[in-house]
């Protein structure tokens, strides 16, 4: 369960989250929507414990995301908005994932394969030299292989071709329905079948929250 209470986050004078209160329960599959700059990424980063709030509290399964980051992140899978230019080779990146979060390489291969990418051919390339779509497929594969109870996807389909998107949604459907999934998306029609809750944000506030 993710419990967000009166969270305000400012960057200088700019208010990115304005007194946001909401709760995500196990089984929630949420489409998080809103215009550019609405505060979606900021909200996600608060949950992941990257930002210190100006006001309010967040708990994830009862724990503080900053103080207990390790405990929380053991159960969180995250795919960022843009794949970062990691200089490690694919092999090293997978090594990092395996060691840090007890994820099996076989499972990663399995899911990346589901995304129709043969990553074994690219193990010795550096991650940033993969194409944008390949990077995203790999990160999605990693996120699915990691056994989590919270899945956070910040617009992961931006670089994917239509078929890869289909594959992605297929993987998501297989995920356990007691977990929390949070998708940032600008295309609600694509995730319609996957989500049971739609949240709209604007100017740092939640302006609508509909359970389907």
């Amino acid at each position: 369960m993710i419990d967000i209470k009166n969270i305000t986050k400012k960057f200088g004078k700019n208010i990115s989250l304005n007194n946001v209160t909401t709760r995500f329960n196990g089984g929630d599959s949420i489409a998080l929507m809103g215009a550019n700059g609405a505060g979606k990424t900021t909200l996600i980063r608060m949950i992941l414990g990257y930002y210190h709030a100006n006001n309010g509290t967040i708990t994830v399964n009862g724990l503080d995301p900053i103080k207990e980051r390790v405990e929380i992140l053991k159960h969180v899978s995250f795919v960022p908005q843009l794949p970062p230019p990691i200089k490690l080779s694919v092999d090293e990146l997978l090594h990092f994932v395996q060691k840090s979060s007890c994820t099996s390489r076989e499972m990663i291969y399995h899911y990346v394969n589901e995304m129709s990418l043969d990553i074994k051919e690219h193990l010795h390339k550096s991650f940033f030299s993969l194409s944008g779509g390949m990077k995203q497929k790999l990160l999605i594969g990693i996120s699915a292989a990691k056994e989590s109870s919270i899945y956070i996807y910040d617009e992961p389909t931006a670089n994917l071709d239509p078929r890869a998107r289909e594959n992605f949604y297929k993987i998501l459907k297989e995920q356990s329905n007691s977990s929390i999934s949070l998708f940032v998306t600008h295309r609600i029609e694509e995730v319609k079948d996957l989500v049971n809750r739609e949240i709209y944000m604007d100017l740092g506030e939640i302006i609508s929250d509909v359970k389907l």
């Binding site: 992941l48 053991k74 995250f78 230019p85």
Partner: peptide, 15 residues
């Protein structure tokens, strides 16, 4: 700057 930190620290690594 390059958001590498954002991804790498989404794994259970302490600061």
């Amino acid at each position: 700057d390059s958001h590498i930190l954002e991804y790498m620290l989404s794994f259970p690594i302490s600061l």
